[in-house]
Write a protein that binds this DNA or RNA. Structure first.
Lengths: 120, 120
DNA sequence: GTTTTGTTTAGCTAAATTGCAAAATAAATG
DNA sequence: CATTTATTTTGCAATTTAGCTAAACAAAAC
């Protein structure tokens, strides 16, 4: 299970329009960049993507996108693997699944629980 | 359905430890403050909470908590209703449910879709 | 071994965020 | 109507964020 700090980090990472778009497009296969030559060229997901390709979709400078990607990676939302001189970028569906489950649980348990917390 | 800006706003609101704790405790019934006299005193959820009560659980000044609550309200995560001179604070499970569904859809559709986006 | 390609780091600025205390507002109570 | 209670607004400082350009680094290609 995700601890609280990890969840907060994920939310923070997704709480910015640019990062959210990057995230969304990586997840829905919005980018392609031929890195993995062993995979069919039309397998847009298998081809994953690289930093430059992603940056091309935005009106921001490359280093800006690079830093956003780092933040998504640090939150475990995406995986970045160096392959030769490019970065192979993949979504991390496990984290999103866990987040989804945590919300589902929350809604299901709503009005079922009543504990007192202290947050100091 | 939640549009993107709304989602980003929700994530931003939850991307701060203090706000996340406030959110979590409101959802799980972590606060009590007798506002609604028609409801049984031990119905911690029905009694909901007020700003002062929430602030008592944190080592932050009251105005700070007030501003955090406003941000959660602006993101539609909680509902704040004035009742006499207190604020009746309730969670908004509908939003959380929608968020949860959006993640579920995302994970389910992963590797199913392959559209190209432009984010300019 | 120089150049090109892909990416990150560094150094900067402007704007936003997060905290505070003090003041202001609103309604209930004495 | 003055006081108390609950909350928000204002004004301030410190910190973080998000953007940029230029420089640095790493690997591939010429």
């Amino acid at each position: 299970m995700l601890d609280m700090d990890k969840k907060v980090k994920i939310f923070k990472a997704l709480g910015n329009k640019t990062r959210f778009l990057i995230f969304k497009n990586i997840f829905t296969g919005g980018y392609a960049c031929s890195i993995d030559e062993t995979k069919p060229k039309d397998d847009i997901i298998a081809q994953a993507t690289c930093v430059t390709t992603i940056a091309e979709h935005f009106d921001f400078a490359l280093p800006t996108i690079s830093r956003h990607l780092k933040e998504l990676k640090d939150a475990d939302i995406i995986k970045m693997t160096k392959k030769s001189n490019k970065i192979y970028i993949e979504p991390n569906p496990k984290i999103i699944k866990e987040l989804s489950e945590c919300f589902t649980t929350l809604v299901n348990n709503y009005k079922a629980s009543s504990f007192q917390f202290d947050n100091r």
